[in-house]
């Protein structure tokens, strides 16, 4: 029996594609209209030349990178240790790492402001540096579900028990084992979690705004109120940025430790040598 042409599926796929692509196309076109009567990249130039843009995106980039580093330092040893020595408390760790999905950012930051306010036992929110730290910790918490999942998946595909025993029999200390044996083996998983963290925290608005930080998210909102064409340009850039983050995340998630970056290319080369 020959299959008939799938009319309905094609129609649904086309409609969805239209819904996905029209806003992108419209935003792109809109972003080109800044100078009257012609299409130009003036809005992009205007954004990239603005010093507030540079300042805020630098701030947010640093904050995101700090969050990635701190998150990695907390989560990788924990995931390793739990798998190796305390498998029975795994559900607890997993539960805690999923909690941020239940706590919306607005609630989390509300708690921060009250607990770490200027007249509390640990007045982090009282100083600029302390507030920066709170922002970074907030990002660590928000990315914890994804980071933990990525790292834990990464550890499930390597044999950490054997690796640890091998390292120990060669005389490596605990910390050395984690830093030089386990870490490199889950690098791909960490990077995959890191890019997701990056895409979440770079344009994050709620925490940054309520903690009063000069970050990229609040700048975006302000720009949206003041300007017409620059926001469209930024939306396009943000989409491209998200795409890049997701592509890199995928790349690192799929790549196994020690495998080549471009498998197909290497197979071809191999065949040539064989012939």
């Amino acid at each position: 029996m020959k299959k008939p042409f799938p009319i309905m599926p094609t129609l649904i796929a086309l409609m969805s594609a239209l819904y996905f692509l029209v806003p992108l196309y419209a935003t792109f076109l809109f972003s080109l209209k800044m100078t009257r009567g012609e299409y130009s990249f003036a809005s992009y130039r205007s954004v990239l030349n603005s010093s507030i843009f540079i300042d805020t995106i630098t701030f947010s980039t640093i904050a995101s990178l700090c969050a990635i580093v701190i998150g990695t330092v907390i989560i990788v040893p924990t995931a390793y240790w739990v798998r190796l020595k305390l498998p029975h408390i795994r559900p607890v760790i997993e539960f805690i790492s999923l909690l941020p999905l239940v706590v919306p950012p607005v609630v989390l930051v509300f708690g921060y402001i009250r607990v770490f306010g200027s007249n509390s036992w640990l007045p982090l929110a009282g100083s600029d540096q302390g507030t920066n730290l709170l922002l970074v910790f907030g990002y660590v918490v928000m990315s914890m579900p994804y980071m933990f999942r990525a790292v834990d998946n990464g550890m499930s595909v390597i044999d950490i028990k054997t690796l640890t025993e091998a390292a120990e029999s060669l005389g490596a200390s605990r910390i050395r084992t984690i830093a030089f044996v386990i870490f490199p083996n889950v690098r791909g998983a960490i990077m995959s979690g890191a890019f997701l963290t990056f895409s979440i925290s770079l344009g994050e608005f709620v925490l940054a705004s309520l903690l009063n930080r000069p970050a990229f998210g609040p700048y975006l909102v302000q720009l949206g109120q003041d300007r017409a064409y620059e926001p469209a340009a930024l939306a396009i850039m943000a989409f491209a940025f998200t795409w890049a983050c997701m592509a890199l995340m995928q790349l690192f998630a799929v790549k196994k430790p020690g495998s080549r970056w471009f498998p197909r290319l290497s197979i071809k080369l191999y065949k040539k040598v064989e012939a």
């Binding site: 806003p23 196309y25 419209a26 344009g203 994050e204 949206g224 926001p231 989409f239 998200t242």
Partner: peptide
Amino acid sequence: FSGVASNFAGVPLAFAFIATLGRLGLV
């Protein structure tokens, strides 16, 4: 595309829809 779009939220998404369906949006 879904991997990207499901993470494309927040302020930029709002901008994209203003440029599409806002009072002066393309559509």
